[in-house]
């Protein structure tokens, strides 16, 4: 057993509680350990993004506790939550969300700048990350000069730059073609394996689901299945 990164207990999120209540998240219990590569799947409206928002401290549950790395984030003030997110969580969004006026390097080091990291530290980390995402030659390119896949890779670099405890990725491959998506998944899987970075994705994408080590299915805000996937590489190795 590794260290617990996410521990959610009895989490509920209800919209319109006074009129027609809609249970976006209904009594969810979730436990994720360091180094996991987990996919959160389910149909549209099943509550995947809401659950990611709650775990990421972007939204507050109406009931229950969410403990991240030993800190109950439901007890934090909005200001403390921002600080917590900055130090502990990396975000990858569906539509990349790079800052258009900054170069790829500046976008990637943005979180480190917010953290007050020194230039030398930033340069070292960004250099290393851009090597990982195979974009060393695009450091000074603006987002508009990059393809969707390249932009998402920069977004991943941005999420990882400050060495967060885990990365939340909301439909990271939704806007990518299959080659770019496959590329991105390779990079994330490698980072997960080599740097032990914990990933939690929400996704519809079968390619992501196939690469996940664990798949959690959410329907109508409830976890209906939680399956550890067989790593075919390990299986092949054992057979041999």
């Amino acid at each position: 057993m590794g260290n617990t990164v996410i521990d959610a207990h009895n989490v509920n999120k209800v919209y319109n509680p006074d009129t027609i209540p809609v249970y976006a998240i209904n009594n969810v219990h979730l436990h994720i350990e360091e180094g996991e590569f987990t996919a959160l799947v389910g149909p549209s409206g099943s509550g995947k993004t809401t659950l990611l928002n709650l775990i990421g401290g972007l939204d507050k549950p109406d009931q229950g506790n969410i403990v991240i790395n030993g800190v109950d984030i439901t007890q934090l003030s909005p200001g403390e939550l921002i600080e917590f997110r900055l130090k502990n969580i990396g975000f990858v969004f569906q539509s990349f969300n790079l800052i258009p006026v900054l170069t790829a390097k500046e976008n990637a080091e943005f979180i480190m700048l917010l953290q007050g990291a020194k230039k030398a530290t930033r340069n070292e980390r960004i250099g290393q990350l851009f090597k990982e995402i195979e974009m060393e030659d695009k450091l000074n390119s603006r987002p508009a000069q990059l393809s969707g896949g390249q932009q998402q890779r920069v977004a991943v670099a941005r999420a990882l730059a400050s060495k967060p405890k885990f990365v939340l990725a909301d439909e990271p491959t939704a806007n990518l073609d299959s080659k770019s998506a496959s590329n991105l998944l390779d990079i994330m899987a490698r980072l997960n394996k080599e740097e032990k970075i914990t990933f939690l994705f929400s996704t519809h994408d079968q390619r992501v689901i196939e690469r996940a080590k664990r798949v959690i299915t959410l329907v109508d805000g409830k976890i209906t299945s939680d399956t550890a996937m067989v790593d075919t590489n390990i299986l092949h190795a054992e057979i041999k």
Binding site: G79, I82, R85, L86, K87, I89, F91, I111
Partner: peptide, 16 residues
């Protein structure tokens, strides 16, 4: 608007 939401989400303090 979207970008501001993203900046706050990734940890930029509102004061900044």
């Amino acid at each position: 608007r979207f970008e501001m939401g993203m900046l706050v989400a990734v940890g930029m303090k509102k004061g900044k």
